[in-house]
Write a protein that binds this DNA or RNA. Structure first.
Lengths: 218, 218
DNA sequence: AAATAAAATTAGCCTTGCCTAATTTTATTT
DNA sequence: AAATAAAATTAGGCAAGGCTAATTTTATTT
C-alpha cells in the first residue's frame, strides 16, 4: 500500500485533474500542497516507479488506471467520513474537512464499504461533491458556477468548490447551504461582481471569486 | 502535540504500567512494541525532554501527570472507536483492535467527546476494558482472572486481557464472549490446566495461559 | 534572435524514527 | 569476589520526506 505522503500526492493530482483539466505541473502540485517544487519532483519519481502516474514534460502529470483507482478510493473515504462527521457527530460544515483529511488514510479492506452502508449509501458529501462508489463510479460533478449563469436565472446551490473554513463560514453568514435557491440578478461588468438574491431575500452583492466557487444545479 | 510514534510509546508505557505494575524497563518496552532497545532509549530521551515520563535506572520509566493524562486520552479514543466499529459498523470482536490502533491517533479537540455521546457514553469497550471519561476518570478494571478463582466458583466473563485475534477467535470458537457464565470445575495441579463448564455446558479443558487472560466479575 | 523570466531539476542537507554493532553497566552465578 | 550473562547505552547508518541554493530547461518578451 501507499504511504500517507504518497496518498496525499495522489489525491492532490486527482483533484487538480478533476478541477481544471489543465496540464498538471510540478509547480501546480507544489502550490496546492504547500510544498517545495523540489520535493514534488522527488515524489513524482516515486509515484512513477510505482506506476501510479506518468510524467511527461509536455503533458504534465497524468494518473495511470491504477493511480486513478487508488485516488478515487481515497476521495471516497474522505467524503464518506465527511458525511459521518456532519450527520452523526454533529460537526459543522466548516469543521469536517480537516478531520476527514486524517480519517481518509485509515486503511482496512471493508471499512469504507461498512461506513457507506451505515450512512445509507449517500450520493453526495456535505459540500455537494459526489461520493465515488466502491467500484469507482460516481455521480456527475456539478460544473456550472454561479458566475457562469445568465443574469435573471434562478438556481439552486448544488455544491461548493472551495472547502476552506473561511469560505464556508462566509456562506453560513449569508445563510447559504446546499439546496439554497439563489437568483442571479445582475453581473457588474467592471469587476464581475454578482448581485444576487438569496432564498428570495433582498439584494446582496458578492465577488466574482465567490460566484466561481458556488456550483449550481440549473 | 505528539507524533504518532510518541503516542504509541506513551500508550505502551501506560499499558505496561496498568497491566503489571512492575518496573518498566527499556527492554520491556522494546519487546512490547517489537522495536530494538536502542530505539527505545532514543524515545525515552525525547519523552523525558517533553516531560511526559521520568526515567530512573532504579525505578524504570514512569509517566508524569501530563504523560498519564495524554496516554489516558489515547486509550479513551482507542476504546471508543472499538465500540463504534463493533456496534455501528458490525465488525467482529477480533477485527476491531488493529483499526482502532489507527483511529486512536486522529486528533481533534471535540472528536472523542462527540463520538462518546454518539455511542451513548459506553462504560466498557467490547473487550471489557473500561473507557476513560473525558476527565480521565474511569471505572475499575477487572483484576481476578479465571485462573485465580477457586474450583467450584461460578463466574462471569467481564473482560479479556489478550486482544490478539488468535485469542479472540479461540474464544469465539468456544462460544465465549463478555457476559458468558463459566464455572471452574477443577484445576489440574500438573500444569495449571483448567476444567471448566461454559454456560452450563459440558466439561472443557483449557490451558492456564487461557485462564490468565480471562478476567471475571466474581 | 537575444534577453529575461519562470519552471524544472539536481545536489546536498536536515529531522524523525528506526536499525546494527560495539561498549559499558548492572545482575546473576559459580 | 570473579566470571558470566543480561541489560542499557553509545556511535554510526539508513530511508522517507521534507528543505534551500544552484543550475539547467523552457517560455516569454523585447
Amino acid at each position: 500500500m501507499h504511504t500517507l505522503s504518497e496518498e496525499n500526492y495522489l489525491k492532490c493530482i486527482y483533484r487538480l485533474w478533476q478541477d481544471r483539466g489543465e496540464k498538471i505541473t510540478p509547480t501546480a502540485i507544489a502550490e496546492w500542497l504547500g510544498n517545495n517544487p523540489a520535493s514534488v519532483v522527488d515524489m513524482i519519481r516515486k509515484l512513477t516507479d510505482k506506476q501510479l502516474i506518468i510524467y511527461d514534460k509536455k503533458k504534465g502529470v497524468e494518473l495511470t488506471a491504477q493511480g486513478q483507482k487508488d485516488a478515487t478510493l481515497i476521495v471516497r473515504r474522505h467524503r464518506l467520513w465527511e458525511v459521518f462527521l456532519l450527520e452523526k457527530l454533529g460537526y459543522h460544515w466548516d469543521e469536517i474537512h480537516d478531520i476527514a483529511e486524517d480519517l481518509e488514510h485509515i486503511k482496512d479492506a471493508t471499512l469504507a464499504d461498512r461506513l457507506d452502508k451505515f450512512l445509507g449509501f449517500p450520493e453526495y458529501d456535505p459540500h455537494g461533491d459526489p461520493i465515488p462508489k466502491a467500484n469507482g463510479k460516481m455521480a456527475k460533478r456539478h460544473s456550472i458556477t454561479l458566475a457562469d449563469v445568465k443574469p435573471g436565472t434562478h438556481c439552486r446551490v448544488a455544491a461548493v468548490k472551495d472547502t476552506t473554513s473561511a469560505f464556508l463560514q462566509y456562506l453560513q453568514k449569508l445563510d447559504i447551504s446546499i439546496g439554497t435557491k439563489i437568483q442571479l440578478i445582475e453581473k457588474i461588468p467592471f469587476d464581475g461582481s454578482l448581485v444576487i438574491s438569496i432564498a428570495g431575500g433582498e439584494r446582496t452583492t458578492v465577488s466574482q471569486k465567490f460566484g466561481e466557487n458556488i456550483l449550481t444545479d440549473i
